[in-house]
């Protein structure tokens, strides 16, 4: 399994858990603003991601994430440098 797929699967599981959405509704183009999460829940999601992948995102990095694809890119960057 590629890193990309691995990250995507782990991320999808976290998002499904947080949003209670079906896994089939979660895809790279999904905008987090459309996922039913309010701003508070989005921060909680970021925390879960930080704990899952072992790094901390700054407020600016967190704010710049719009889609699942953005998150995957950011996770790859952070895991490569941490």
């Amino acid at each position: 399994m590629s890193d990309q797929n691995n990250i995507e699967q782990r991320l999808s599981a976290l998002i499904a858990e947080k949003t209670k959405l079906n896994a089939t509704d979660i895809h790279p183009a999904l905008n987090l603003e459309d996922s039913g999460l309010d701003s508070f829940a989005r921060i909680e999601l970021i925390l879960v991601i930080e704990e899952e992948f072992g790094f901390e995102l700054s407020d600016a990095e967190s704010a710049n994430v719009a889609t699942i694809a953005d998150l995957i890119t950011l996770i790859k960057e952070k895991t490569a440098t941490s």
Binding site: T19, K20, L21, D25, D34, S35, G36, L37
Partner: peptide, 11 residues
């Protein structure tokens, strides 16, 4: 209105 309802509308 639930998150699922919003997702259905989006889809």
């Amino acid at each position: 209105v639930s998150p699922q309802r919003i997702m259905q509308a989006m889809n």
